[in-house]
């Protein structure tokens, strides 16, 4: 797992931009304001540097394809590689995880107080999660909201479904609702696959990492 410093820095941003391919530069231009441009360029350049090393290829041979729901995968000379990775960023922090397959997901979110956390939670949390959120108040509600958010988003990113799978259709493991920092997890719609979910959060930022546990036969 790598941390990417997303603090504004003109020279680093210019160098990062120089590592992007034409498609990525076009995307960079489509971001309407500087902050998402900076996050994209710095995270993508860090991803490129790490993948080029892991795949033993030069940066210009590397490109990215996208799954049905937008999850990126690495291509070398236009051919898909098995290298797995996932990226998340929030504020001035980017996180990148790597694995030998693409069944991994990471999420980081700053615990910013905001209006109507219960209302937002009603769209994405399951019954037990909503009940716990309703019982919490003040800073504990903020903490819980983002803890749940990061865990559920890490899971749907690992699955590759994004929000095509409504996050209210599953709940994080009971042990983690009770405070455990990690647990095994199974999606209700695909219980044969087992995932490992880890809460990486600290006081200011919620973060979580999920990966699929290989089957005993290695699948």
């Amino acid at each position: 797992m790598f941390h990417v410093d997303l603090t504004p820095h003109a020279d680093r941003e210019a160098y990062a931009f120089s590592l992007l391919d034409d498609e990525e530069k076009a995307r960079w231009h489509r971001f309407p304001v500087p902050a998402p441009r900076r996050r994209f360029a710095l995270c993508r350049a860090a991803l490129r540097a790490n993948l080029a090393e892991r795949l033993a290829c030069s940066n210009d041979r590397l490109s990215f394809g996208y799954g049905e729901y937008g999850k990126p995968h690495a291509l070398v000379d236009g051919r898909r590689t098995p290298a797995g990775f996932n990226v998340s960023h929030c504020g001035r922090h980017g996180l990148i995880v790597f694995a030998s397959n693409d069944r991994i997901g990471i999420d980081v979110a700053e615990r910013n107080p905001r209006r109507d956390l219960d209302g937002i939670g009603s769209m994405v949390y399951g019954p037990t999660e909503r009940r716990l959120l309703a019982l919490a108040a003040g800073s504990r509600k903020v903490h819980l909201f983002f803890r749940l958010w990061s865990m559920k988003e890490a899971l749907i990113k690992a699955l590759g479904s994004g929000f095509s799978l409504n996050p209210s259709r599953f709940e994080v493991p009971a042990a983690m609702l009770e405070g455990a920092r990690s647990s095994e997890f199974r999606f209700p719609h695909a219980p044969s696959n087992c995932w490992h979910l880890i809460d990486l959060g600290e006081h200011r930022f919620a973060a979580a990492f999920a990966y699929r546990i290989p089957d005993p036969d290695g699948a």
Partner: peptide, 28 residues
């Protein structure tokens, strides 16, 4: 997808859209 909006903000925005226009859009 190129707006730079976070997923939390996107879901919060669609919740407001639901309320404002009497819709019941789900995240998916």
């Amino acid at each position: 997808g190129d707006s730079g909006v976070s997923s939390v903000d996107a879901v919060a925005f669609f919740k407001e859209v639901n309320q404002a226009f009497s819709l019941s859009l789900e995240p998916e």
